[in-house]
Every structure is written in C-alpha cells, then in structure tokens.
Nucleic acid binder design. Structure first.
Lengths: 198, 198
DNA sequence: GGGATCATGTAACAGGTTACATGATTCA
DNA sequence: TGAATCATGTAACCTGTTACATGATCCC
C-alpha cells in the first residue's frame, strides 16, 4: 500500500469504469466500455476517455485489486480481456460515491461523474451526495468570504496586488455561489423524481 | 517547428515567466523568478510553479527562442543562468495577452494570469482583454443555452440521460453566467482606476 | 556548529493527448 | 473493393507533483 494520497481529484476515470462494470452485472471488456465514452453518450459530455487511457486504467484497476481479468476467446473475433469488479472494487465505488468533492473546480468533472452513477445505483445515495456536496461548498464559500474580509488594507501592501487578490477571491466566491445555486435546483428535481411528482 | 497546436490551455506557466522577465527589465534567473511564485505573492494564489517545473519551462522557452540564456559567474556564490527575453518572446507575450480564453474553466487560471500581466503592462490592454473575454463568454453562454433548448424530448432518449445532460448544461450556463457577472465588476473597477475616481 | 539562503537541478511517478499498429470480418 | 467495426494496445510527447541531491555561504 503506497499511501500516496494525491488528494487532488480522485481518479474519476477509474471510478467511472468501476461504476460501469458494477452496473453491467459486474463484467465488461475494453471495447465495450469504450462505447460509454463515445460521442452522444451522457458520460462523454463530462469526461473524456480515449482508448489508450481506458486500457491503461483497466490494467491499473487490476493491479490495485478492484477488478480481476480473464481472457475470453471469441472464435473468429479477436479474444477479449473480460474484467470483473471485485468486492473491494464495489466497496471502493460506494466509498467514492458517498464522498463530496472538496473544491469548486472539481464539480464540473468529478462531481458530475459521481452524480451520474449515484443516480443509477440508488436515488437516496444521490440525494445524500448532493446534500453533502452542498455542505462542503457552503463551508468553502464562507472560508473565501472570510479571506476576502481579511485582505490587508492597500497601505501595507502594493495596491495593485491587493486589488488583484480581491478579484481572485471574488471570482472564486462567484463560482462557488453559482455551483451552490445549481445544487439546490438539482436537489429539488431529485426530490420531485423521488416522490413521483416529476 | 512542430505545429502541435494543443489549443487547450496555452501554457500559462511559460507565459507567466515571459511576463515576469518582460517586467524586470528583460532579464532574470531561476531562483529569482521562483520568488514570484512563493507563498504570499499574488501570482501564487493563481498558479503554482515548483522549482522543478520552473527550470524545465525556462529551458523550453530557450529552445523555442522566446528567451536566450547566459551563465553569470557570482564569485563565491554558485553561477547563475541568466535568461533574457527576446523580441520574439515579447511579441508572443503581447499576442497571448490580447487573446481571451475560449472556455469558462480556463478563467480561473489562465485568464487571471493574463489579467495580472496585462494590468502591469498597460491598463488599456487590460480593459481590452476584459472586454474580449466578455464577448467570448457571452457567445459561449448563448451556445450552451441553445444546446439546452435543443435537448431531445424524453420519449426519444432515456429520461435519465436527458435529465443528466440537462443538468450538465445547466451547470455550465451557471458557471459561465457567474464569470460574466464577475467580468462586468472587473471592468467597472478597471474603469474607475483609469479615470482616477477609484 | 547548525540552520537558512543561494542556485540549479534530477528522479520517479501520475495523468493525459494524438497518432499509429495490427489483423480479421462484416457490409455496402 | 474498400470502409467500418471489432479488439487491444504502443509510442512519443506534454504537464505536473513530491522528494531529493549538491555545495557553498551567511548569520546566529
């Protein structure tokens, strides 16, 4: 176990592959999985995964122990490497789906992938994810607002620099606020689906 | 000349180095430039650049011809590689500073770096950049809105998938709208600085 | 004597892009 | 005949992260 917590984006591509395998009765092969990332597919609007990286990730998942693989002869067609999700893989998938992302910038890729699979698996899981994510972003927004308030007055630091720092923070607050508003809408539409009024 | 137009993010780190060299009378060495990216510096809030990557980028800039380098003995201290921006480098910097970013996601890093240097160089350049960026994002927002309107009705495509695609587009619209609002504020504060009423 | 600073890097890894290689088969 | 599909990859490149190597000198 190399405890290399990158902490910065938790491999959304690999978890998406786990999610697909979990959904498709636990098994699948590369070419098959690649279709889910091709044009027109909902996942393709969020995450891009070329064949090269896809096969790479499958091998890495096998090394980690989240999937196992076996060769399946196809008669006339080239043989397939069929991958099967393991119990460890399913556990990891659930863990990942329950965890909100920490930064606003991870919403547009990693959170959307989580949301996609959470909805497919269990609408309550999705609702919990949305709610956790909202809490995380609320804290983030408050922290940013405090940083804004704590900016030094322009007579201590060059005025240009303070103005720039303020703009940077204001952008982050704006982006976080926009994501929060969007999450609220999401929650409402999820609730509407859940009680059948959608 | 390998015409490898990645088109996706135009090396903000290297352009930031060009910008710093341009500002500091055209020359500088690695250790010196590294200070601008260390904690507390305004650039550090936007772009992260560890020494390893910094020296790598300087060499790459030299290969491209945007800087030249010469060794400067320091007597007792270790000798410096002093880098000097070339005419081609200055031209490239101006070109880059005049160009808005194409995607909303590039606002939080690349656009902010452009803004930082545009302001240092020439406030009118900064105003033009902001205005161009606003135009670009407006078009982007309209395109996203049209895509939203063009989503297929749920009876042709699985309802879940359409709902998901709608959420994805709604997030992008929200993020783009937030960036536009922020740009408008920026423009106002830039104008206030320019006519001395700030 | 010992840590911070000056100054430049390397090594090992992780993630990602584009293009290409291989070779059979189905279908227009 | 030739393109698309099935199926799996490699090669070469780029960006980026963390950690470490080297060796002197300044300052306490």
């Amino acid at each position: 176990m190399s405890e290399r917590r990158t902490n910065q984006g938790e491999m959304p591509a690999e978890h998406a592959l786990l999610g697909l395998l979990d959904r498709e009765r636990g098994t699948g092969h590369g070419y098959d999985l690649a279709r889910s990332f091709s044009e027109g597919q909902p996942l393709a609007e969020v995450i891009r995964l070329e064949p090269g990286m896809l096969y790479h990730h499958l091998k890495k998942l096998a090394r980690t122990g989240w999937v196992t693989s076996s060769v399946e002869p196809q008669g006339t067609r080239p043989p397939r490497q069929v991958y099967q999700i393991t119990e460890a893989g399913r556990a990891e998938l659930r863990r990942w789906l329950a965890e909100p992302v920490s930064h606003t910038r991870e919403i547009r890729l990693e959170f959307l992938v989580k949301l996609y699979f959470a909805r497919h698996l269990d609408s309550r899981l999705a609702e919990r994810l949305i709610s956790e994510q909202r809490n995380t972003l609320r804290e983030r927004k408050q922290s940013l607002t405090q940083q804004l308030a704590a900016l030094p007055p322009s007579d201590q630091t060059p005025a240009d620099d303070v103005a720039f720092s303020r703009h940077v923070l204001e952008l982050r607050v704006a982006q976080t606020r926009a994501a929060l508003t969007w999450l609220n809408q999401l929650e409402q539409s999820a609730a509407a689906v859940a009680d059948g009024s959608g």
